[in-house]
Structures are given as structure tokens and as C-alpha cells.
Simulated assay, not measured.
Amino acid sequence: MRIMTGILAAATVLATALPAVPAMAKQGDVLVRVRAINVMPNESSGSVLPGFPGEEVGVDNSPAPEIDITYMATDNIGFELIAATTKHSASGVSGTTGSIGRLASTWVLPPTLTAQYHFAPEGAIRPYVGAGINYTIFWNEDATDELETAVGTTLVRMSDSFGWALQAGVDIPINERMFLNLDVKYIDINTTATLTTTAARTQTVDIDLDPLVVGIGIGMKF
């Protein structure tokens, strides 16, 4: 709530500094946005099993560019598809795995489709909310040098995830076609990481990533 309050306050300040322009979003319009985002996992982890009961992992934040496309089915209802990929590292937080530090890295691709409701398509400030689904693909998983120094060559695999997403944001016109965008998403992402060493010893850990994705960018109407 504090993040959204800050975003709406900033939007109000920006909107008062901009001249009035025609409505940006009408039925049939396509809105393309390019954002700078920061993906901040709200992770919770199970134990690294069977070898390290009680030891959990943490996942770091990651900034990245993002692109999205919204089709306005009506003046108020739009459908948005977003695509971005970010790289994250998982680290031990206690015990033996904590002393190793970074355990593995992976790229995350979570294409997300949301249905949006735009409250004021003709307003100087145009807030919207959305809800939808995502399918998250983990790719290019890799054990860190720190882990392989401790246990030898290790194969890392992370299971893909299907989940839901929530969204809130605001568009602020710059001119008749371009607008500033501020956006926050919460994405439900869960995975199981499997680490297999050359000695055929396998450890698994369940991780709920559930990131908050905060972005700011520029959009254009087509």
C-alpha cells in the first residue's frame, strides 16, 4: 500500500505539470510500453533436503528492461501481455549452505497475461488495476563456483511454474500519443530446485518466489 500511495502521489504531481491532451485509450487501441523494472522476490523456502534439514535459501533482487502490449477491448477494459527476463541468485542463509554463500543462479522468464480495468480513460491521470495468470520458465540454471568448490561439479534444474498475478498502475499523458507509466505487479511463482553432484547425490529445495515487480516507463498508443 505504501508503494502504491507513493506512485499515485508522484502521478498527481506529474499530471498537474502537463497540459490537457485528448484521451489516450479507446476501444481498439494498442498500447505499447517499455519499462525499467526491479523484480524483488518475497521468497520463502523449505529446507535443503535430505542433506541439510532446517537450512533455507534466499533469492536476490534483479533490475531489467520490460516490454508490454495492451489491447483495449473497450474504453475501460484492456488485456496486457508482459515479457521480461531477469537473472537471480539463490544463496544459503544459515548452517553449511550459508557458509558456502551463493549456491546457484538462473534466468527467469515469466510471461504474464492480465485483464485490466481502466478507471478514467479520458482523465488527466488514468489509473488501472489488473489480474491474470503467468507461466514462469527457469532457464540457463547454473551452479556457482562457490558451490562446486565445496561439493564438486553440480547440475542444477528448476521446475517451471504456473500461477496468478495482480497489477495496479497509472498512465499519465505526455502528448496525444505518448504517456508516462508507473506500474506494480505481484506474481505468484513457485519452483523446486534440484542439485545433483557428480557423486549422484541429489538435494532439493522448494522455493516460493512471489516477487513484487515495480516499474516505470514510457508508452505509446497505436
Rank of each mutant, 00 (worst) to 15 (best):
N140K: 13
A83N: 10
R126P: 00
I82A: 15
A15D: 06
E176W: 03
A115L: 11
M158C: 05
S44M: 07
F179N: 05
A11N: 02
G169Q: 04
Y71I: 06
D60N: 15
F119V: 08
T74V: 10
L109H: 04
E56I: 11
Q167I: 04
S159H: 06
S45W: 04
T149W: 10
A17P: 02
E146I: 05
H118A: 02
G132P: 06
L49D: 13
M178G: 07
A15I: 01
A168N: 08
H118D: 09
T85I: 12
R157T: 15
P211I: 09
I100V: 13
N38K: 15
M4D: 01
M158N: 07
A83V: 12
V151C: 07
N140W: 01
I100C: 08
P111W: 03
A9S: 14
T196P: 03
I67W: 11
T198A: 15
F162L: 15
L81T: 07
G217F: 02
A25T: 12
A143L: 00
I133T: 07
I172W: 01
T97E: 08
I218R: 06
T154R: 10
V30N: 04
F52H: 13
P65R: 12
I7S: 01
R157H: 12
D210F: 05
F52P: 04
S45M: 06
Y186H: 13
F138Y: 10
I133V: 14
A131G: 14
P22I: 10
A199Y: 11
P53F: 05
V93R: 15
I137D: 01
E55V: 01
T149F: 12
M4V: 04
G6K: 10
P173I: 02
A143K: 00
P111L: 03
A90N: 04
P41E: 10
T196W: 01
S44R: 14
S99K: 11
S47E: 02
F138E: 00
T144V: 02
H118S: 08
P65Q: 10
N76R: 11
T16W: 12
R177K: 14
I189P: 01
S62H: 10
D188F: 03
A120Y: 13
D160P: 00
V21Q: 15
A200Q: 14
I187E: 05
L182A: 12
T5M: 14
V170E: 00
A84Q: 14
I37D: 08
Y135G: 05
A83Y: 11
N181V: 13
V34K: 09
W164G: 14
G169M: 03
V21R: 15
T12Q: 14
D210L: 05
F79I: 13
M24S: 12
A120V: 09
L49G: 10
